[in-house]
């Protein structure tokens, strides 16, 4: 299973980063998250990164980052999804 982001659908709201911190700490603590999001409001670029610490929300019902991304930018892909598909989702 792999979580991928569709850059075209991402609004840079950082909700995924915050949701992930809740999974780990039961608090709201963006410094403790597997995801970091930042954006440049002048040129419009968005940086989104998920690091290797992601434990796929062990113990939770569902993946919190995916659940709280109301923009549908985060998607779950199976391990056997082909390259083409993954690329499409940035």
């Amino acid at each position: 299973m792999k979580i991928v982001r569709n850059g075209n659908l991402c609004y840079a709201c950082k909700t995924c980063q915050l949701a992930c911190s809740f999974h780990y700490t039961k608090t709201f603590w963006p410094e403790r998250s597997s995801i970091t999001v930042s954006r440049n409001p002048q040129d419009g670029t968005i940086k989104w990164h998920m690091d290797a610490t992601c434990d796929k929300c062990m113990g939770e019902e569902g993946l919190l980052c995916v659940k709280y991304c109301t923009y549908g930018a985060l998607q779950i892909l199976n391990n056997n999804a082909n390259e083409q598909e993954v690329k499409e989702y940035d």
């Binding site: 609004y11 840079a12 950082k14 909700t15 923009y71």
Partner: peptide
């Protein structure tokens, strides 16, 4: 389009 912090 962009959103503010934790805004759906």
């Amino acid at each position: 389009v962009r959103a503010c912090y934790s805004c759906p």
